[in-house]
Simulated assay, not measured.
Amino acid sequence: SPPVSLSPGAEKLILHLQKHSIPFALATSSGTESYQAKTSAHRELFGAFHHVVLGDDPEVKASKPAPDIFLACARRFSPHSSPPPPSTSAWCWRTCPTAWRSPRQRGCRWSWCPASSSTPNSMAGATLLLPSLGDIQPELFGLPTFN
């Protein structure tokens, strides 16, 4: 896979979360090799994530739309706490039209930043609909505002 370009607003959001020491992670169905190739042009930025859970992770038994990858991702924020933090304290920002049921099944609040090819049906159940990651207003999520 060739390196991918960042979604509009992604870099600003990642740097903002990092600046304010707000833990954030990535759950992607991409396997290790694909992930490394896709993110090769943005290694430093992707290094800011608290952790990354990939589709070929041994803890991910069933692929999306099963919530396995989101459960593994949530557990890794606080691996020594039992039970893990409640999913209702997490936000999931989705940018692709697949697997939208996964965060909803887990009880997460989730925002949809759809690709132009998304249909209204693919957005059902979203807590909030945003045109892109660039339109996120952090204060709507209980986060510090952009400076």
Rank of each mutant, 00 (worst) to 15 (best):
D56P: 10
P120I: 10
L54A: 06
S5T: 13
F146D: 05
A99I: 00
S82G: 14
S34I: 13
K12W: 00
P85F: 09
C113L: 11
P120L: 12
P120T: 11
S81E: 14
Q18M: 03
Q137I: 13
F24D: 03
R76M: 05
E59A: 14
R75P: 03
L45P: 01
T98L: 10
W91G: 05
S29L: 13
T28R: 07
A25W: 04
A41P: 07
R94E: 11
T145F: 14
T32N: 11
P67I: 04
D135M: 15
L26V: 14
L143D: 02
E33A: 15
L54I: 06
I136S: 05
L130R: 10
L133P: 08
G55L: 06
R94V: 11
S87E: 01
C92H: 04
L129Y: 13
P23R: 02
P79A: 09
E44F: 08
P65E: 03
E44Q: 09
F46A: 02
A124S: 14
Q36G: 11
P23T: 03
S40P: 09
E139Q: 12
P103G: 05
A66C: 11
P144T: 02
G9R: 03
T127R: 04
P8M: 07
S30L: 10
R101G: 02
H20L: 01
P86W: 06
V53G: 01
S1H: 15
S89W: 06
R104H: 06
F46Y: 11
G107R: 01
P84S: 08
S29C: 15
A72F: 01
C108Y: 04
Q18C: 07
C108M: 12
P85C: 07
H80R: 14
T119I: 10
E59P: 05
S7R: 12
G47R: 06
R109P: 00
V60Q: 00
A10M: 11
L133H: 09
D135V: 12
M123T: 12
Q137T: 12
E11T: 10
D135Y: 15
P131L: 10
K19W: 02
Y35I: 01
L128E: 09
D56C: 13
V60A: 02
G107L: 04
P114N: 09
K61L: 15
S81D: 13
R75F: 09
S102C: 08
R101D: 02
L45A: 08
C113D: 00
G125V: 03
P58L: 10
H20R: 04
T119W: 03
V4Q: 14
R101E: 05
K19T: 00
A66H: 07
D68E: 05
A90L: 11
N121I: 13
L128N: 05
L143C: 07
S5F: 12
S82P: 12
F49T: 07
K64N: 06
L130I: 12
